[in-house]
Simulated assay, not measured.
Amino acid sequence: MELALRSTLIFSIIGFLVNFGLGTVAPILPLYALTFNVSIVMVGALVSASAISKVILDMPSGIVADRLGTKRFMLGGLLIVAASAMISAFAVDYWMLLIGLTVQGIGSAIYFTTSYLGISRTAPPAKRGRHLGLFISLQFLGTTSGPVLGGLIGQAYGLSGPFLIYAAFTLISAAMVYFLVSGASIKGAGGASVDLHQITRTFRNYTLTSVNAGLFTTSILRAGLVSTIVPLFAVRNLGLTTVELGAALTLSAGFNFLSLLPASSLSDRLGRKPFLFSSLLFGGIVAAMIPLATDLLTFAVIMSALGFALGLSGSVGAYVTDVAPPPDLGGAMGIFRTMGDLGSFIGPIILTAFIPASAGPINASPFLVAGMILSVSGLLLIPAKDPVRSKAGGRK
């Protein structure tokens, strides 16, 4: 097996385990937060907690990992995530849970930024979409598997139980990094330095900016709508149990997985832009349709369509790697991760502001707002360049 593929498989399996643990938490987190008798807005702030620490640390993590490339950053990040899950599991009040999720963001920023850079450095350019697609696909396979188990554990053993599962799988992942990941295999541009000019160059590049905008709005939808408002909608409007909610979210993630890897592989030949554009436009339309669900079946169908649409954006990380100059890759990937996590931070805060403070049904407003901003970001891609498509003889 070639070294690049072996490295990608190791990173991908670790990503699966981490996201499996995270997936067990997804369906119960808003409900767990409400057990501390807080408002919906505070629930939104809680879901945003890990994202704000990622926003602060993504850029430094990308720069340091690119320059040094040692596995201790990945290992340290995973150990921090495991500790944060334990804090959350044994939280005695809202503020302790908030601290746990904030610490989780610190570990995630360190680990995932290094993982993206490692694959970007080792994957052959002609197969970059396929390698990153495999990495992201297995992350989503973990997300696919997690919610049902999280719902079952939450219902049988209490809403704090899934956090213990999360901690266990993260510790297993840390052991795999320690024993299987070679520090040399993820070493970046050792002597490279990152300054303000490199960062401003990244923001002046229209294609990189439009790709980052797409990731930003997708993250708003994932964190603000799917992770925060959809569970509340499912319980309040449709009367679903946590197990039914977990099953629907698992089905959605499954369709995400089904479209993600083929789209990522095809993007190596057909270009990145068609898939990212389709994901944003189609995803925005489907998101606005969620309030039309009237029972578990229609809810599951719409969420499955949304998962499929979002999976088409699997090559977005490869798009950044295609466009960014090699010396600027660390900074560009740091900005890329920052924009995604910034969307995850502000998404729950923005979208929960559109729902009533009472315990009644969720209205259509947050779904329409999320759908609109996702579709608009898709239109911003129209003038963007697509190096892969150009090399294949297509139009930019």
Results as ranks from 00 to 15, higher is better:
V388H: 09
F336S: 00
L5T: 13
Q198H: 14
G334F: 04
F112V: 01
L292T: 01
A305S: 06
S115G: 11
L75Q: 04
N212P: 11
V376T: 02
I136E: 15
V323N: 10
G224H: 01
I346R: 04
V103N: 04
A293Y: 12
A253K: 07
A51E: 02
T143I: 14
T122F: 07
K385P: 02
L78V: 09
D66F: 08
T70M: 11
L251N: 03
S39I: 03
A287P: 09
F299D: 02
A45C: 10
A309Q: 00
S48Q: 05
E244L: 12
I87Q: 07
V243D: 05
I40R: 15
N363H: 04
G133H: 11
S61T: 15
V320Q: 04
G394K: 11
L368M: 10
L238V: 04
L381H: 07
Y166P: 07
S84G: 10
R269D: 02
M1V: 12
I136T: 14
G347V: 00
L9C: 13
D386C: 10
F299L: 12
I165Y: 11
G150I: 05
L379W: 08
G314C: 05
L280N: 00
A234K: 08
S252C: 11
G284W: 00
V38E: 07
I302S: 11
D195T: 07
A175D: 03
D322K: 11
G347T: 00
S137F: 14
T113K: 07
I302N: 12
S7Q: 14
A213Q: 06
V226D: 01
P30K: 01
S304P: 11
L9G: 09
F36P: 15
I106Y: 05
R269S: 08
A175H: 06
I87H: 13
K273Q: 04
T338P: 05
P387F: 05
A247Q: 08
L164P: 13
V55T: 04
I382S: 06
V55S: 03
I80S: 09
Y94I: 04
P125M: 01
L134V: 13
Y94T: 04
K187V: 10
V194C: 15
G311C: 07
K391S: 14
A288G: 15
T70F: 13
A167V: 08
S264L: 13
G394L: 11
G360W: 06
P325M: 04
T35M: 09
A156T: 11
L208C: 08
T122V: 14
S185K: 12
L132Y: 12
S12V: 06
S53T: 15
A357C: 05
T338R: 08
L34Y: 06
L245C: 03
F36D: 08
